[in-house]
Design a binder for these strands. Sequence first.
DNA 1: GTCTATATTCGGATAGAC
DNA 2: GTCTATCCGAATATAGAC
Lengths: 192, 192
Amino acid sequence: MKPNARERLIEGTRQLLWERGYVGTSPTAILARSGVGQGSMYHHFDGKPDLVLAAEQRSAELMQQQIAEAFAVEGTALERITGYLKRERDVLRGCSVGRLTADPEVMADDTLRAPIREAFEVQHEHLRRTIAEGVADGEFAGDLDIDETASAIAAVIQGGYALARAAQAVEPFDRAIRGVLSLLRASAPRAN
Amino acid sequence: MKPNARERLIEGTRQLLWERGYVGTSPTAILARSGVGQGSMYHHFDGKPDLVLAAEQRSAELMQQQIAEAFAVEGTALERITGYLKRERDVLRGCSVGRLTADPEVMADDTLRAPIREAFEVQHEHLRRTIAEGVADGEFAGDLDIDETASAIAAVIQGGYALARAAQAVEPFDRAIRGVLSLLRASAPRAN
DNA sequence: GTCTATATTCGGATAGAC
DNA sequence: GTCTATCCGAATATAGAC
């Protein structure tokens, strides 16, 4: 119980939001998961929305970190994109940030939506920059639309989770990733 | 109030599930949305899970119908796929079937998950058949992996919704769709 | 078949003691 | 700062009248 009640509350809420979304995450469940008492919760946070915001910011932060790390490696553009898409993921769990786009309470509130929006903007920037480098290096076709390609890749990740969960199997996710990577590879100017 | 209390209950539940998911859909809200009384609901259905199953089946059925219609048109494989991806959609509302993959109550119960799984299987079959035709006709590269490509396309749709909702704008969805279509077009054997 | 009444549990929070 | 007690309304039903 040492690691700071505040910290434990944020992490417990983050996990619950990831699994069950906004309505599915009750104060009672948060307390049980965090191992702190009710008094602590209302001491550190104004209420559920406030705590949820802190948990969201944490998830968004972690997502941005993982993206930055994945793209910080050496290699060609295709290698870095492949590395990011194929990095270790708990596929059936899905994306802790993407999950929240399903929640109307989160989407309807600009404050609660902001961390989600920003995390995807950062992801888009990393993809766009890397694809642009690939085009500049002649690795990808010169007429490839950078933004469209970046959005397609980001969508494959989020949608891959949905397909995998529907099937309760990792395979559809992996297939979708391999599919978009093959298309990207095939779009190379003349090589391959 | 004529169109059958049962029918109204299914449609009301379907809409609520679409918007708010399983936990977010309360009996009280269903009654309000459907305009029927509590007695009717427990007369026609065993309880919430039973009614939810009926609503899911309806959503899955509608999705399968729309897919079948979109692919029943004349045209090249690319034209039919483009037509399906660009057909009218209420993008910010997302997919009534895909939404449910976010719900742990639905994913944990094989009975409740079945309609979702089946709808995506049917979608995959349509995509796979159409892509296979495109390959046979020399429209797409001969070494294109049919299943991987089909999964990538299906993922772009579902993930596109997530990106659009995060931004509260249709643009990311449209960009992702255009992106995957460009990649598909660019993968053509030698044409273009 | 549909309605109203009632029951039980939980969600979300306040109050005040320690 | 954390704990326990308490509060009110909503979620999810059951019972029984019409």
